[in-house]
């Protein structure tokens, strides 16, 4: 079974009387262990597609199966559980809590875990070491550079051991040198058998992926 299976997925946004069809029947299969880049210009529907894959949004019609579960029939709470256990997010704007330390930020997803976990803090320290920020564990986001903040966000995405790492323009705020360092981290994660999906408009970033999907006006090409 593939990790993600989308069949004839449509997504329509309604804004008053106007309805905009962001996705016009997407068929997509992502296998476990893949490294996929979804490329498109702004307004192409790539972010909408990412939101659907990441269980952040529900589809209008079609079918989405994630990790053997029919996502289209799940409740809001069940979607939260899927995101918590199976998906790690990395965003363009990092989204770290400004009042929490790096370590506390990494631990954020563990707050919402259903079962009790004892060694969460140790695991978080290990992950900070993995992204090279062990000695910055007590720093606040405003004491860290953009690249460092994104590394913290990656550590946070990994803390609950998800199958899927989902990144939306992860290097959009970073200079090209730092961008390469961040992408190398994703490559490393992919080598450790994580499935990685990166959404970007930048071909240089997309080139790190093993498979590139183009999206335009809500339709995909490979």
């Amino acid at each position: 079974m593939p990790l993600c299976l989308l069949e004839k997925v449509k997504k329509t946004y309604r804004m008053g009387d106007l309805s905009v069809e962001a996705l016009k029947g997407i068929n997509l299969r992502i296998e476990k262990g893949e490294f996929v880049a979804i490329m498109g210009t702004s307004g192409s529907g790539k972010t909408t597609l990412m939101n659907i894959i990441g269980c952040l949004d529900v589809l209008t019609s079609g079918r989405y199966v994630f990790a053997d579960r029919e996502v289209s029939s799940l409740s809001d709470d069940e979607l939260s559980v899927i995101r918590n256990e199976h998906i790690g997010f990395v965003f363009q704007n990092f989204y770290l809590l400004p009042y929490a330390t790096a370590l506390e930020n990494v631990l954020l997803p563990t707050l919402y875990v259903e079962k009790r976990r004892d060694n969460a803090e140790k695991h978080a320290v290990d992950l900070l070491r993995l992204v090279g920020l062990e000695e910055r564990a007590k720093f606040r986001p405003n004491q860290l550079s953009g690249g460092e903040q994104q590394r913290v966000a990656i550590a946070r995405a990994l803390i609950n051991n998800p199958e899927l790492l989902l990144a939306d323009e992860p290097t959009g705020q970073l200079d090209s040198k730092t961008a390469v360092e961040i992408m190398s981290l994703f490559v490393k994660m992919n080598e450790q058998e994580k499935t990685v999906v990166v959404v970007t408009h930048n071909p240089n970033i997309a080139s790190f992926a093993k498979r590139i999907i183009q999206i335009k006006d809500g339709v995909i090409f490979e």
Binding site: D77, S80, R83, N84, F89, Y95, L108, L111
Partner: peptide, 16 residues
């Protein structure tokens, strides 16, 4: 809003 967003994305339920 962003804080709420990231909490929801990482698995917080409405109730949380």
């Amino acid at each position: 809003t962003a804080e709420i967003g990231i909490r929801r994305a990482t698995g917080a339920k409405k109730r949380d």
